[in-house]
């Protein structure tokens, strides 16, 4: 038995690389095996199929998730369950971040009613740059995750499915997110969802930023006091919610001479003293020029852009980030409108 090909579709985008970086060596970051990502995805299938989602588009990859899902699809689903048809996107596989960008673009082109993302802040950042107004359901499987939450995949699947099938109106349950955009020499270059940090380190290297030395300026779209990673530096001084209009902007300095010292959890199990010279509000639309002459820009905790003396960089906070589903709101709407319970007529 299969669902109607004209039934709504959803994209499921799982980053096979999330959760493998150097923070497992320099901190005590957890390992998130692909076997568990595969399990999460099949739990999504159960929820999506039950709600009438006809097709799930998935990223093709060379690192095992696609193969494991194909293997899962070869065996019958648990009894009484109907899984959606799964289509692996026809795309070149480079086993790099560009795969995520291409997959997100193709999902949008297929007209999906939502994209469920399994990954860390970095993966969500990539999807956000291509998702447009397609709502994202954010599931954490990475390291220093602030943007996506650790949620049970079955429930995330229900929420995404309820919206994609039109049973819950997206306008009631999706929220627009802020985003930090970086311009390099006047050209919009990239974005961060949570934090954008400059460092005087010269190389992208192993990507993560986990040392206090070299951290120069930090821009935050929101800053929660209970966050992990760079945004905790702001969150422990002046918390800013996701819904607040503005963000934060901090100039960092050597803890030996800085007026404020924050003991920040920069990575799991890694509490480090960070010196803060100044904290300022970051207003939407305001372009702030970076003060460092050379170094790297880290987006959501990962070094992404190397720049030198000849480059001019500026950062802006904008309110044109991705739409994300508020899973709790969707499920509450479903309860209030009796979407998942019924009176037993017997």
């Amino acid at each position: 038995m299969s669902l109607d090909d004209h039934a709504p579709s959803i994209g499921v985008l799982a980053n096979p690389a999330a959760g493998r970086d150097i923070r497992r060596l320099v901190a005590q970051a957890s390992v998130f095996p692909i076997a568990e990502k595969r399990n999460m995805i099949t739990r999504l299938f159960s929820s999506l199929g039950m709600l009438g989602v006809g097709t799930v588009y998935m990223m093709s990859d060379g690192n095992g998730i696609a193969d494991r899902i194909r293997h899962a699809l070869e065996t019958p689903p648990p009894s009484d369950q109907i899984w959606p048809k799964v289509v692996f996107l026809d795309m070149p596989i480079e086993d790099r971040a560009v795969d995520t960008l291409v997959a997100a673009e193709k999902m949008v082109a297929h007209g999906v009613g939502g994209i469920i993302v399994l990954g860390g802040d970095g993966t969500h950042r990539l999807v956000a740059s291509r998702a447009g107004d397609v709502p994202i359901t954010a599931l954490s499987t990475g390291t220093n995750n602030v943007f996506p939450a650790m949620r049970e995949a079955s429930i995330a699947g229900l929420a995404a499915g309820l919206v994609a099938t039109g049973q819950v109106p997206v306008g009631d349950c999706a929220v627009r997110n802020k985003v930090l955009r970086v311009d390099v020499n006047g050209v919009e270059s990239d974005l961060a969802l949570v934090d954008l940090c400059t460092s005087t380190e010269l190389w992208i290297g192993s990507r993560a930023l986990w040392r206090a030395e070299g951290l120069d300026q930090l821009f935050l779209s929101f800053a929660e006091a209970d966050a992990i990673g760079l945004s905790s530096i702001g969150g422990l001084i002046r918390p800013v919610t996701r819904a607040a209009e503005g963000g934060l902007w901090l100039n960092l300095a050597d803890p030996a001479s800085a007026p404020i010292i924050v003991t920040a959890p920069l990575a799991p199990g890694l509490m480090i003293d960070i010196g803060v010279e100044a904290v300022q509000d970051l207003r939407p639309g305001e372009a702030i020029s970076l003060r460092a002459e050379r170094g790297v820009v880290a987006l959501d905790g990962e070094r992404e852009i190397e720049f030198s003396q000849t480059d001019k960089l500026a950062v802006r906070l904008e309110w044109d980030g991705p739409l994300t589903l508020d899973i709790s709101k969707v499920m509450t709407y479903a309860a209030e409108h009796e979407l998942l319970h019924r009176v037993n007529a017997n």
Partner: peptide
Amino acid sequence: MPGVVVDGHDFFAVYEAAGEA
């Protein structure tokens, strides 16, 4: 024990991880 993946085409990525190990 810790296990990490690095880009083996990037000297600087390897050098950094190797230094920590």
